[in-house]
Design a protein around this nucleic acid. Structure first.
Lengths: 111, 111
DNA sequence: CCTGCGATTGAAGACTTCTTCAATTCCCGA
DNA sequence: TCGGGAATTGAAGAAGTCTTCAATCGCAGG
């Protein structure tokens, strides 16, 4: 392997590290979606969406399918859902942790 | 929720998007590890490691524990292992996809 | 108290990534 | 073949992240 695995992983996570890209992946989870519909959901300029779609395409996690005048995107394979679920689980813990911390800080204010 | 969830997720993934941070999380999976040992494994300047550890700490995914003169880091909670496994599964698919693509390109060269 | 080691911090410049713009491609229908 | 809508591209400035440096903190031992 030319590229060390931990670097490939880091690149992979960086690819996920953008709100629009996350939303797109979530929207694609029930099958292909036309760019037009993504634009409807996401409230962003078309060219910006295209840029983000290009990032996803380059990584290989999605593919684009042209049908006449409309282009649709679809997940390339695998269990993206599972990844996002795992992320949500951890994220939930982290946010709970922060809430508790916040509560303690408030206590400290009062006490 | 003040911060939309998809933005929190994006920040979370961005936090993971660095080779050193990934390695640290992997090294912490069997329990706390002193900074000294991390430095031994990772080949990076101490101050750089500290910066990356600070990123992890700020996100809440790890905590630091001081014992006399040595500081150790530990996972704050949850199933980071599962997340990394899910990531590896997808990553493997993606890399296989790229390898196949490469093979096709070579075919095209010959044919 | 002072020295030294382990680790952290803040700041600055190099480097990446984001957003936006104008220009372009692709395809359909007239 | 021309017009027009859908989507993409390339480029440029703004914004963010990385690496490194010197300075600092905290603690143990002399």
């Amino acid at each position: 392997m030319q590229v060390p695995l931990y670097q490939a992983k880091a690149e992979f996570f960086r690819m996920l590290g953008h709100p629009v890209r996350i939303r797109v992946l979530e929207l694609l989870q029930n099958g292909p979606v036309p760019v037009r519909d993504l634009l409807n959901e996401i409230d962003i300029e078309p060219s910006n969406l295209s840029q983000q779609l290009a990032v996803l395409r380059r990584s290989g996690i999605v593919v684009s399918i042209r049908d006449g005048n409309t282009v649709s995107y679809a997940l390339a394979g695998g269990d993206v859902a599972e990844l996002l679920r795992a992320a949500r689980r951890i994220l939930t813990e982290l946010l709970v942790g922060q809430t508790e911390l916040l509560a303690e800080l408030r206590q400290a204010d009062v006490g």
